[in-house]
């Protein structure tokens, strides 16, 4: 089993997860309804805050369009942040982690593979959010979709670095999810998911610069609401590439360390 077998392993992992997901068909309907209701909630909230608002003047479409982008992409980023740890915990809980670790393939590859279906699903949900937004009047007709895709992919990679660190914490300490929750809550508060960071107190605003989410959402709004060109998106693309280059090796090192620890302690499959 060499590197050239890896795509096949990833495909089988993806296929496995799709087949498992298809056994929970009602969940698809419920998630669709949840998306629909969430978009509707923010659509009506936007009626309350109609008119000029601080931080919104840079984007077309007012508060609804602003919140729509935050909602559409935060779920995708959440897969990067919490998905790896979540899948690892799930495998520990149902008892298949050890069986997978016995395969002659790197365990990180299987952990990555187990997040492929959630990614695809989240991409689908993001598209659904945007479609619903378009129907409700969000100004997406002039969007730079390829630019937005590049930013979304780069952000997913960068945030995955944090997510892989979370998975490492799960392996090493059994309770790493709390860290992901904190980062996710911080991102919701600081990075401009629901409201512009400009309305936060100045010192708190500076904290938002530490999160890749901030640059991703800013770039996504520029690309999708203002139709910014690739040249205009250079800053968020470079910053997200920098985050990726820094965080992915850190995440990989943390995971390798955690796997070693689990093999020493013998609590590899425990949760």
């Amino acid at each position: 089993m060499g590197v050239r077998d890896w795509p096949a392993i990833l495909w089988e992992t993806f296929r496995r997860d799709v087949r498992i997901a298809l056994t929970y068909r009602l969940a698809f309907v419920l998630r669709f309804l949840s998306t629909l209701f969430q978009v509707a909630v923010f659509y009506f909230i936007s009626k309350l805050v109609a008119g000029p608002q601080p931080g919104l003047e840079n984007y077309q479409g007012g508060y609804f369009a602003y919140a729509l982008i935050g909602l559409a992409f935060i779920r995708l980023f959440s897969i990067s942040l919490s998905g790896y740890a979540g899948k690892l915990t799930e495998a520990q809980q149902i008892g298949v982690l050890e069986a997978q670790a016995l395969l002659p393939v790197p365990l990180p590859l299987l952990i990555f593979g187990s997040n492929l279906w959630p990614y695809l699903y989240a991409f689908g949900e993001t598209a659904l959010y945007l479609l619903l937004g378009l129907v409700l009047g969000a100004p997406l007709a002039g969007a730079n979709a390829p630019g937005a895709l590049v930013i979304a992919l780069l952000a997913s990679v960068a945030i995955s670095g944090l997510g892989i660190m979370g998975a490492a914490l799960i392996l090493a300490f059994k309770r790493g999810n709390a860290v992901s929750w904190v980062v996710e809550a911080a991102a919701a508060l600081l990075s401009g998911v629901y409201f512009p960071p400009q309305i936060l107190p100045q010192p708190v605003q500076k904290l938002s610069l530490l999160l890749p989410h901030t640059y991703a959402l800013k770039g996504l709004r520029e690309a999708l609401l203002n139709g910014a060109s690739f040249a205009q998106l250079t800053q968020p693309i470079l910053v997200l590439a920098g985050f990726s280059l820094a965080l992915i090796p850190l995440g990989a090192a943390a995971l390798a360390w955690a796997l070693r620890q689990a093999q020493i302690k013998g609590d590899f499959a425990q949760y």
């Binding site: 498992i20 056994t23 008892g95 298949v96």
Partner: peptide, 10 residues
């Protein structure tokens, strides 16, 4: 562990 090492939904 034969009982807990499979994907039960498959």
């Amino acid at each position: 562990d034969p009982d807990r090492s499979f994907f039960w939904r498959l």
